[in-house]
């Protein structure tokens, strides 16, 4: 199981948004601060915090909380 609170905290720190504004429907289309630069930072942070190696495809797909969790669950086994 992926620690959702850990992910939320991570996103809050990197995107500089209130943790309460992050939920399972959050994504780059409804969080203004989630731009191409912060996306890179987010991906790097996720790799280090969840101890996974992500592929270019993962990075490309990880543009929402749902897809991040889905990909992480697949990688963290």
């Amino acid at each position: 199981m992926i620690d959702f609170n850990k992910l939320k905290q991570l996103m809050s720190d990197i995107l500089e948004i209130d943790i309460n504004n992050i939920n399972k429907d959050s994504g780059s289309d409804n969080i203004e601060q989630w731009n191409s630069l912060s996306h890179v930072q987010l991906v790097m942070a996720i790799e280090a915090e969840f101890d996974v190696k992500l592929t270019p495809d993962d990075m490309f797909d990880m543009l929402s909380v749902k897809s991040i969790i889905m990909i992480l669950e697949e990688r963290v086994k």
Partner: peptide
């Protein structure tokens, strides 16, 4: 030591 802790 990690990008996340730098962000924090």
């Amino acid at each position: 030591e990690t990008p996340a802790s730098y962000a924090k």
